[in-house]
Design a protein around this nucleic acid. Structure first.
Lengths: 220, 220, 220, 220
DNA sequence: TATGAATGAGTCTTCATTCAT
DNA sequence: AATGAATGAAGACTCATTCAT
């Protein structure tokens, strides 16, 4: 069952339909992929709809069949990229048996591969860049990603405290401290990589270590 | 030593120079202040030169007497905002006698008041937003701010290690971990403040604590 | 004898023809009715084919099965609305026994109910608006409506003169003077109605009176 | 003292200024003249701003320095063409000593030369065509032209009645009847001229005659 | 026949930059 | 040095028309 989640016009035609015309959902995907590239490269205002169309392999007008305007396209972009990662992490945490240390490792590995070393990295950058100018998107992003992410982090902390793995509630009060390095990771290589590449696995490992010790880690 | 790379007409109006035209330098400042506002509000592409001019209280054409084009204005903006903070911190650290814990506190307080709770906050946001698209600026920023900042952090760590205040070299290898929360701070309120305001002093305090403990802090 | 100059697919669906597809003719009607609304509301250039289709309850593509293009649709519109009124008036006049005064009254009443207080009012407005830009339509309209109308008016005058009911040939030479108020009537309420509504029956009555007296009316 | 009446941005520079750059007012005129041509030819929606610019001999962007958008340009057009004629007629009537018949003659002659046989003719056509879609303009036109025109006509009638020149108050109640033929005149030649040219002076003479007699004219 | 997704030419409008004053 | 009118390239978006189903 393909993951489909478009909150916009064209619903998939016949679920078993022909493969000829690429089928609305696929086309929508193509557009969003193209849009991610273009927005990432030029920012919202700088992105040209025509470029998005060209890269998606469709005509300019077709774009507007799928997204009513540039803003809707940007919103669609963020909407669409939102949950997958978090959903999985939430489920994994729910059933996780191992130590908090193990889960943190898992967490950062996920983030690294799914959010940083993937086109999704640009979504984060775009949010940092344009979020303040798109309250509607910021709201959505807060609701779907940030709040959920912080809640997950709080849950992790809570459990670790309950289990006696850690002693401090610092990260319960400020879960932002745990993902802060993700922002650095999302942004570093594009800006400063040529001067001083950043060893992401290394940094996340060091971060996990630092955090755990900082929170008073002791083997449960 | 202030930098200059604009086609600024007046023959190096030293900040304390002659009294002739009290303008020039002052006008440059006015322009840059206006530019910061406008760029911060709309991003690079979205900013309108006319708005900058209006807010600076000058005519559109006059802008081009001070900055050759929009890009030069943006560069000038970043250039100009760079120095102050770091210079002071570097000097303070050089002569600092107290404990690393005390200095960290000082550091975050500085950052909070000088970089976050000030228009400069927008510079950080602008760099996050546009950095990838302006290699020249990213380079400058790296050289003048980032590299220097990281070096300062490394020096702090080094000294703390040398003094036996901490045990881990994690922050020596990844000083980014120490400023990561600054990015969160620079960005949070504008985007998510209305949903969940962030207690900056609290967060920085928690962060300092976390880091110190994480690095194996023991009263020297 | 109704005219046809559209690429209408069905093999001349005589209004009383077979029962097969009850459509075709009905559909053509629906389209023209929709078109009248839309053209009236937005003018030729401003009208959108899609709107016409929607209001006619058909798909955009179907429109082009009935009318080769927008211009043909507009032409069809005018063509179709032309006949009815005049034909009836001509016939009525041919067999009219009463006084010219009575016929004039009849005439204006007809015009009022059939041309002004009816969607056809918009045809007049559309001709005023777009006529100059559509010579083909203007020609058709002249032939089918204007010339016939003027001829009817001339005939009326002629007979009135012959009967000794009036003395002047002014309206014979300028029958336009007799329908001029129709233009006012067709246009007034839409434009100025909210400032100063126009009492149409009153105006036409006054007009008839004015004209008759002006032409030297005397009870025959 | 040239007749200047721009309700829009650029006020004339120095009243005695150089002749070099055509001077705002002149340029505004040029734009309006060009706009009249283009709007008359293609209607509001069909008119292209670029054509207006070209015909006015300026760049596309310059247009927007004088009129904020297409609608404002259209409004400017109507505004600007509005009073001249009426103002003069009102003044002439105020001081008129002759007979009502003489004044009517004068009136129609004025209208013929100033409103029909002039580019202004197109303003009337444009109002007929687009008035219903531009309530703001219709209102303005009503206030500045129609209401004033009707009032003038009522005044004429009133005086004629008072003087005993005419007996009927028909045209006092429906002054529209007096200018109705003006609509015909404004529209006829462009649409039907090639089939049946209209002798305007003849028609207006016949109309004046008809009206006067119709109103019960008797030499005072 | 009917559909409506797709196309791309065409249009308004904005804005960085120039330049005559 | 300062101005702000003028320019025109560029970009978002629309819509008549086509065509695969």
């Amino acid at each position: 069952m393909p993951d489909d989640r478009e909150p916009t016009p064209p619903p998939a035609p016949s679920p078993r339909g022909p493969r000829k015309r690429p089928d609305a959902a696929a086309r929508r995907r193509a557009i969003l992929d193209a849009a991610l590239e273009v927005f990432a490269e030029h920012g919202f205002t700088g992105a040209r709809m025509e470029d998005v169309a060209r890269r998606a392999g469709i005509a300019k007008g077709t774009l507007y069949l799928y997204f009513k305007d540039k803003t809707a396209l940007f919103e669609g972009l963020v909407h669409d990229a939102a949950d997958p990662i978090l959903g999985r992490l939430e489920r994994e945490f729910a059933g996780f048996e191992g130590s908090t240390r193990d889960f943190l490792e898992l967490l950062f590995q996920h983030i690294r591969t799914e959010a940083i070393a993937s086109p999704r990295r640009h979504i984060i950058r775009l949010m940092l860049a344009e979020g303040e100018r798109f309250p509607a998107i910021a709201d959505f992003y807060y609701r779907e990603v940030v709040a959920r992410g912080l809640n997950l982090l709080r849950a992790i902390n809570q459990r670790a405290l309950a289990r006696g793995e850690i002693a401090s509630d610092a990260a319960l009060r400020f879960p932002q401290l745990i993902i802060a390095p993700v922002l650095v990771a999302a942004v570093w290589d594009g800006m400063f990589g040529r001067h001083e590449p950043l060893d992401l696995p290394g940094m996340f490992a060091a971060h996990a270590e630092l955090v755990l010790r900082g929170l008073g880690w002791r083997e449960a």
